[in-house]
Amino acid sequence: MKIEVDYKRCEGHGLCEDQAPDVFELDDEGDLIYQFEGQDVPAEHQTAAARGAAACPVAALRVVQ
């Protein structure tokens, strides 16, 4: 499982971070840091990552199987 982040669309709401703090993080400027950019999401983080992606209010996160 991979997650595609549309950084242009991300507005920094941080709802993904609330759902999956080990996967998504907002830095001090409010910019999104996605821990598994360009990689498969490790199995133990997949449930949380999918939950985080589904929480995005502007649909900037997309789960790709």
């Binding site: 507005e11 709802l15 609330d18 589904a54 929480a55 209010p57 502007v58 649909a59």
Partner: peptide, 18 residues
């Protein structure tokens, strides 16, 4: 609860929700 659609979603998702 975070899945609620009250602010809309996607392109037209509420711009003022923050």
């Amino acid at each position: 609860a975070v899945h609620q659609l009250g602010f809309g979603l996607g392109d037209h998702g509420c711009a003022g929700q923050g």
